[in-house]
Amino acid sequence: MAGVKHLMAVLVVLALSAPAMADLPAAREAYAAGDFVRAETLASADPSAEAQALAAGAALALLVADRAENRRNVADRLARHARAAIAADESLAEAHLRMAAAIGFEGRYTGTLRAFMRRLPQQGKTHIERAMALDGDDPWGPAMLGAWHFEVVRRGGGRALGARLEDGMEAYGQAIASAPDDPVIAYFFAVALLASGEAVYLDAARAQLARSADLSPREGLDAALDTVISARARTLLRALEDDPAHAARLAVAEMER
């Protein structure tokens, strides 16, 4: 009898100490439905790289869709999930892209000078390049590289860090060619073009906003986020048609939220 009690006690301890496993199908379903908070909660309960990357993606979606009540807290969670995903599987490209996004938000909230002093742009680019080396077919690799070039130039670090608008255009163009049905990439390409302040890019920004606005939501995981971003593209496109300078200010605000 004592042996049975001891065995039961051991089993209870093991059950309590074992990591909780997320219901990943339910997390993906919540993400696809636009319930990013629930998706993050469910996925973050699982320590696997895949689950932590999904949790990071859900946190990022909250920021991108502007549904975060406290953006800094959500950005911190994004970084935490991304680090956990990389720790679980360094070869997961998605985890490095999430980490690059987290570093980008950290740079926004840190301020330009401190971000450069802490080498945040270099760290972000390292993760982007690592992701591209691991998975050359993911269009978000070149999309984020394009965003990196535009943002570093906009913040005045182009010469020091080797960022160029031309390289940003090329990288974003590669991403659009790889994912012509992705309204999110098209939208953020347009935002980068407008935020650059270069009048020569106005027509290209208009074209990408029109693309994002007209695309139907993709089936599956990205449906809800696509819907949100396409609606935002329509709003920014109307602003661009009415007042390009105002649209540029809106784009800068988007980059700095």
Results as ranks from 00 to 15, higher is better:
M1I: 08
A2C: 09
G3K: 15
M8I: 12
V10S: 07
V13N: 12
P19C: 13
M21I: 15
P25Q: 04
A26Y: 08
D35I: 00
E40R: 14
L42S: 08
A43S: 03
D46K: 08
A51F: 00
L54A: 06
G57P: 05
A58F: 01
A59W: 13
V64T: 12
A65V: 09
E69C: 07
R72I: 11
V74R: 06
L92Q: 08
A93N: 06
A95V: 08
H96W: 03
A100L: 01
A100S: 12
T110I: 06
F116S: 02
T126I: 12
A131D: 05
M132R: 13
A133D: 10
D135R: 13
G141P: 03
M144E: 14
V153W: 00
R154C: 04
G162K: 04
E170V: 14
A171T: 01
A175I: 02
A186Y: 10
A195S: 13
A195M: 11
A199R: 14
A199Q: 12
V200G: 13
A207C: 09
A213M: 04
P217Y: 14
A223M: 02
A224R: 06
D226M: 08
D226G: 10
V228M: 05
V228G: 12
R232I: 06
R234E: 10
L237C: 03
A247W: 05
M255A: 07
M255T: 11
R257K: 13
